[in-house]
Design a protein around this nucleic acid. Structure first.
Length: 257
DNA sequence: ATGGTTGCTTAGCAA
């Protein structure tokens, strides 16, 4: 089974690229982030014609996540359901057969010390709490998405320039480590222990041709599932050419799923 | 040089 994640930075602006990519890569499951559309205008019919079921959790202008899959879903969860008032559409979990799949768009945090950064840290803790109360570590479960945290310095093109900045700050790295401590494996790092490869490059200052990027899009799964992971590839080609997203897709292959 | 690019919405925000 091929499971992928891609922050498309507006599904409407990226529809042509998305359809071409689905046809070329043929993932079984694709998690999308920053769709930026409300659910009633999500382009489900067009995706259906390519052979994908879609579950969406979106809003106008900002945020928005979705899962596409060859198989139909059941058990769709939108938001943490933790009683906290939150209009931001960033958390969607579905069941595809025996597998649970989450598509996540972790808050960016804007700058360390701001309200948005505090919201990011609180959001990561809410994710951890959701796992503790709603998930089973012994079952196949995968969370894919734009996590907006580069876990280690080797995930950063220039660690000194990024030291203590948003996406690299020790507090958010610690918060992500707490989430993972529940029992999630970063399968890219598991299979590529020495790689410095990135998934996001700023649109500005020729960041992509200079490869000034960060690895902030992740595929995190339970250990039993991670044991069946055969490869994880960052599709850098999808960041090239006219009108790309600022993120590249990440694609993982799993045996026995 | 406190910039720079993109998307949504239409001037300013978010990333």
């Amino acid at each position: 089974m091929k499971i992928a994640t891609w922050n498309v930075n507006s599904i409407r602006a990226r529809m042509e690229r998305l359809c071409a990519w689905l046809a070329a890569q043929a993932p079984d499951v694709l998690c999308l982030q920053e769709t930026k559309v409300e659910d009633n205008v999500f382009p489900a019919l067009e995706l259906e014609s390519l052979g994908y079921h879609a579950a969406a959790y979106g809003q106008k202008t900002y945020n928005g996540v979705a899962v596409l899959a060859r198989q139909p879903f059941d058990d769709i969860v939108r938001g943490f359901g933790d009683g906290i008032e939150d209009a931001q559409a960033r958390f969607l979990v579905v069941r595809v057969g025996k597998l649970r799949v989450g598509s996540l768009y972790v808050p960016n945090g804007q700058a360390v010390g701001t309200d948005k950064f505090r919201y990011k840290l609180a959001w990561l803790e809410r994710w951890r709490a959701w796992l503790a109360t709603h998930a089973d570590v012994s079952q196949p479960l995968v969370f894919c998405g734009d996590i907006n945290v580069a876990p280690e310095d080797r995930d950063v093109h220039d660690p000194e320039a990024w030291r203590d900045q948003v996406m690299c700050h020790p507090d958010e790295r610690a918060a992500l480590a707490e989430v993972r401590r529940w029992g999630l494996v970063d399968v890219f790092r598991q299979l590529n222990p020495d790689a410095s490869q990135y998934t996001w490059w700023d649109y500005r200052q020729l960041s992509f041709p200079k490869n000034r990027g960060l690895r902030i899009d992740h595929i995190l799964c339970t250990q039993g599932m991670a044991a069946g992971c055969r490869s994880v590839v960052i599709d850098r080609d999808a960041r090239k050419g006219q009108a790309p997203s600022d993120h590249a897709p990440v694609v993982a292959e799993f045996a026995d799923l």
